[in-house]
Every structure is written in structure tokens, then in C-alpha cells.
Simulated assay, not measured.
Amino acid sequence: MVTMPQINVARRMSTELLAAIALPLLVLGILAVPFSAAAVAEVDRTRARLCGMDATALQPEAQTRPRWLWRRARTRSVWRIDLPVFIGALILSVLSLLMAFFGFIGAVALVFSPAFWFAGIPAQVGPFTPGAWWQSVAAVPVGAALGAVTAGLLVAVSVARNLLLRAVTHRDDPAQRARLEELRASRAALGAAFEVERRRIERDLHDGAQQELVAVVMRLGLLEAAAEGTGDERMTTLARSAREQAERALVRLRETVRDIHPRELSDLGLIAAVRELATRSPLRIELDGKGDDTLLAAPTAAAVYFTVSEAVTNIAKHSGSDLARIDLRFSGGAVRAAVLDEGAGGARIDEGSGLAGLRERMRSVGGDLEVQSPAGGGTLVVATAPGSDGEEWA
């Protein structure tokens, strides 16, 4: 009966023979680093799992290999983890090729040495050439031993691959990675739930309190007109004051509703919402938007919108500049939003600051926020977020 250790040894030998055969591809892969490094490292994780090592695949199931490689090749992990694995695979594959070629060919020649002898073809293995039939027979156990030693060496090379993979991924503990993915999923779900709640509040205020307040303004207008008809100055003044106060409250309520979740963002998309934001700003704003913003997830669109809104507010309050430039780029559900001014600069993402809060909001949708703001050199705020298919900006 075949046991699990025997199956594991067979898998290790088979994968090393495949690695030896694939050596020319690895050599050609040098021309396409870091993409080849990411691909080889992912294949090596598959090999490690076949050989009994706990190695988790990094490529998401819903993502194609080319798209994942493009994304992986632009991360730091490809140099910190994948490149050492690629170099190690190249070196160890050379060893496997040499061992398999000389070891197994020599073993076969020695094991079948008697058959070669009687066929009149002396089997030469290195310096050994049988000079008599009994020497060819004596070479059979030597050939078997050589084959066993070669198999053992190939298994040792396979173990060395596992050790290398474990060494460079020692920080990527599977349990820790699983907890991290769970945390990311929970944070994304929380952000989505928060955005749904914001939209519900906006809808309730818009369709409820705001409509009621509009009715109050209209009735106060009727009351003012009736008071003017009676000639009662005091009543007219009170009605006019109440109407004006109600109108101011209506304006404040509409601003509050817009700050919670702008209706343009839901109905027309991010570019239209930012364009409407620009018309309300005291700054002169140059807006450039390219790409399709309809592929953005609602939480991502909201996070980018409020990041841009806060950046524009900061420019108006602190930069001393009256001009801002907003650049929006979209690609396959991914987005990059840049807000630039030529003001005083010196902005930083300090703990507890508004920019830190915006960065956390962007991270809640899988994105990030960067700020470049040298003193006296203006400020550049860049928010990026990946699409649902994993496509992201470099």
C-alpha cells in the first residue's frame, strides 16, 4: 500500500523534474522581471502546497492571472518576497537539472549495464567502463544506489525551496493573513453600511424635514401677504421675519443634506457631484475629469467626493490661494483624484487631523491618501482607490 510519505516524496521528485525542464523559461523570465518573479513565486506557492507546505495562494479567485500579475508587479512585495523566490528557483532548478541529468542517466546506464554488455555496447558512466561481464553485473546495485541518492538529492532541493519560501514569507503567517483579510472585509462592509445609512438619512431629510420646511416657508409667505392686506405693520414685520428665518433654516438644512450625501453623487455620478461642488466654492476651480465614473462603487465614490470636498475647504481656509485644480481619472472601476493648489503648503497628515481621517476613509474602501506639501510650494492631495475587480493605480 502506498503511504502519504511516499506520495509526498513522489510529488517532490516530480516537481523538481518539472522545474529542471522549465529552466529555459526561468532564464527567459529574467527579461521580464518583476512580472516573471510574481508568476514564479505564485507557481512556487502552488508547488509548496502540493508538497505538504502550508502556503496560501495570493491571487484572488475572481481575478485573472494577467490582471493580478500587473497589480502584483507594482507592489513592494514583488521585490521583498517574489524576487528572492525567483532567484532561488533559478539556482535550485539548475541544481535539479544537473542532478537529474547526470544522476538518473548514470543510474539507468549502470542498472542496464549487463544488457548493454551482452549487446556489445559497454556502458560508460564517468570514469567507469565495465571490462568484464561480472563488472557490468556488479554495476547494477551501484546504479540503484545512485538513483536513490539522486532522488534523495532532488527531495533535498525541494525541501530547500520550501525553506526559502518560508524564510521570505515568514511575516505572512496564514492565520494572521486570514485575520487581516477578515478585518479588511469587515471594514469594507462597515463602510458600505455606513454609506447606506448616510443615504437613508439624506433621503429622509430631503423627502421629510426639507419638504415640511418648504411648506412652512410657503405658509409664512401667505401669512405675510395676509398681514400686509390688513395694514398691521407689527404683524407684517413678524411674519416677514419668521419667513426669512425659515428660509435661512431651509438653506442650512439643504447644505446639511448635501454634506451628508449629495444627491448629484447618487443621481449623476462623481464628476457631476464634484462639478457642482466647484460651483458652490468661493475658489476658482479648474476641473478635469476623464474616464467612466459609472463603474465606481457607491462607498468609493462617496469617499473620493468627501476627500475632494475637504481638500477644497482646506485650500479656502489655509492655503491663501484662490485657485484650485481638480483632476479625476477613472479606469475599470479604479479612481485617482488629485487636488492641487499653489498656496502656502506645509500640510501634513498628523494623527487626529482631518487629513488623517480622510486617509482612513480612503483606506476603508481599499484605497489610500497621499499629501505632498512642501513649505511655500503648494499642496497636492492624491486619493486613489482600486476597482471591485482589483485594478488599481500605481
Score class of each variant (00 low, 15 high):
39 A>Y: 15
129 T>V: 11
168 V>A: 13
287 L>R: 12
142 V>L: 08
98 L>M: 11
93 S>E: 04
176 Q>G: 11
253 L>G: 04
70 W>L: 03
310 E>P: 01
390 G>P: 05
344 A>L: 06
284 R>T: 14
49 R>P: 06
96 S>E: 07
202 E>I: 06
215 A>L: 14
324 A>Q: 10
289 G>W: 04
257 V>G: 04
310 E>T: 14
157 V>S: 07
320 G>R: 09
99 M>W: 08
393 W>L: 01
218 M>I: 13
114 P>N: 09
304 V>K: 01
355 L>N: 02
228 E>P: 06
193 A>N: 13
354 G>K: 03
252 R>E: 13
197 E>Y: 08
350 D>F: 03
182 E>N: 15
357 G>E: 04
51 C>N: 15
337 A>H: 00
37 A>M: 11
161 R>H: 12
50 L>H: 09
352 G>D: 09
293 D>K: 00
69 L>C: 02
73 A>P: 06
143 G>Y: 03
153 L>F: 11
354 G>Y: 02
254 R>F: 03
269 G>D: 12
271 I>G: 01
106 G>W: 03
71 R>D: 07
208 G>K: 13
234 R>L: 07
347 A>R: 01
332 G>D: 08
123 A>M: 14
302 A>Y: 08
279 T>S: 13
7 I>T: 07
50 L>T: 11
4 M>T: 14
262 P>T: 00
138 A>P: 12
190 L>V: 05
200 R>C: 05
142 V>Y: 04
328 L>W: 01
37 A>P: 08
26 L>W: 00
124 Q>A: 14
66 P>L: 05
